[in-house]
């Protein structure tokens, strides 16, 4: 079975690291809640890619556990996105905005 793409673990880990950093950056700097959510998806996908890559490039051969974990991550991420979007919609309905600076009501 030949898989297209680079045949080394470090290439995939590098891509995952870039994805993860981009996600963290987006979560930290975006003011729009949808942008924050996009950053979150990048972080989760970086983790899923790492699970799959680590499972594929094991010293003692392919390990299905890594791929399985990646599938779990993808499924749960979809559920999480659904709940998050529902909550953002609830915020939008009450304040007509999902800008995190504008919707701040809770403080001491």
């Amino acid at each position: 079975m030949s898989i297209p793409g680079p045949d080394s673990l470090s290439a995939y880990l590098g891509v995952a690291a870039v994805l993860f950093s981009a996600g963290v950056l987006a979560m930290a700097t975006r003011r729009n809640a949808i942008g924050v959510l996009l950053g979150l998806e990048l972080m989760l996908n970086a983790a899923a890619l790492q699970f799959a890559a680590y499972g594929r490039f094991r010293a003692d051969g392919l390990d299905p556990q890594g791929q399985t974990a990646a599938v779990f991550v993808i499924v749960v991420a979809a559920a999480e996105a659904a709940v998050a979007l529902a909550l953002l919609f609830a915020v939008y309905r009450t304040s007509k905005d999902v800008d995190l600076e504008q919707t701040r009501e809770l403080r001491s």
Binding site: L44, L87, V91, R104
Partner: peptide
Amino acid sequence: AEAGMKYVLFGGA
């Protein structure tokens, strides 16, 4: 709604 939004965004992070 804002509490839920903050909870889900921070929780996701």
